[in-house]
Design a protein around this nucleic acid. Structure first.
Lengths: 134, 134
DNA sequence: CTCTGTGCAAAGCGTTTGCAAACGA
DNA sequence: TCGTTTGCAAACGCTTTGCACAGAG
């Protein structure tokens, strides 16, 4: 069991029931867009407003506690910041999975063949997930 | 010298001066966002409207002649469709460079370690470009 | 007690739509 | 000529802002 309040505090964010719920949803679901979050939280807080969701998401991004994942042809989703990883996205159902990839060969190649000094990667692999591949 | 009109026709798009100018700008600049395009075209067509830019960009995306590149903390940019490639993005100045990468090792890894059947990659490498690295 | 967060309503901004006139084929 | 595109204005949807009240520390 995770202590969401302590997690929030460790990122310098005041604890409120709404914030705890946001973090809990993201922790349990991995990736969610604004609407998903809003609908989920509405059942717990019937009078929560979208403005509250936006303000909190932005505050959490500011503290580098959350990050936004931009995917082609899809609304952005948000996730808790963790170890760098790639996203596998199903082009059929939109399902998103995390995978920690060995990117050393790509990094070496990019650093050797360009003038860039690369320091982070953002990799999205698109395809069909297990259930949509049938 | 490129024949932009023929290129448009080959993608089943009627030729108009505005469209030729859009393709020309994208061809010359590689990656542009809507505002960049609008400002550039304004000097050639003082009464062009943003609606025209949007309609044309969407039509070209529809025909898979253009594609949208979504980059974190930045407005989307558009580019002419070509061979699959990664994007090197400078976190300082926003400069974007294309690079054709060997992604076979990553693809193998993803296909082996997940249930996904991957069929395309979308790779953004962030770092400092040559001039910003000084 | 003080400062921050919440919820509401309004404002803001980027994008899309409807329509009449202009244009391409 | 006929169907498509353009440019304008209005509409739309998502996100942000201002403010009064409530809640956290």
């Amino acid at each position: 069991m995770i202590n969401y309040s302590a997690l929030l505090r460790s990122y310098d964010l005041k604890v409120t029931p709404q914030r705890v719920a946001i973090v809990e949803e993201l922790y349990l679901n991995g990736h969610m867009n604004i609407d998903d979050l809003y609908k989920k939280l509405l059942s717990k807080f019937p009078s929560i407003s979208l403005a509250t969701i936006y303000k909190n998401i932005n505050a959490m991004i500011e503290k580098v506690f959350l990050s936004e994942v931009k995917i082609a042809n899809t609304k952005s989703v948000f996730e808790l910041v963790k170890e760098e990883h790639a996203h596998l996205v199903c082009s059929e159902c939109g399902n998103i999975e995390d995978m920690i990839l060995d990117v050393s060969s790509i990094l070496t190649e990019a650093n050797n063949r360009s003038q860039f000094k690369i320091n982070s990667t953002n990799i999205i692999l698109e395809g069909l997930c297990c259930s949509c591949n049938k």
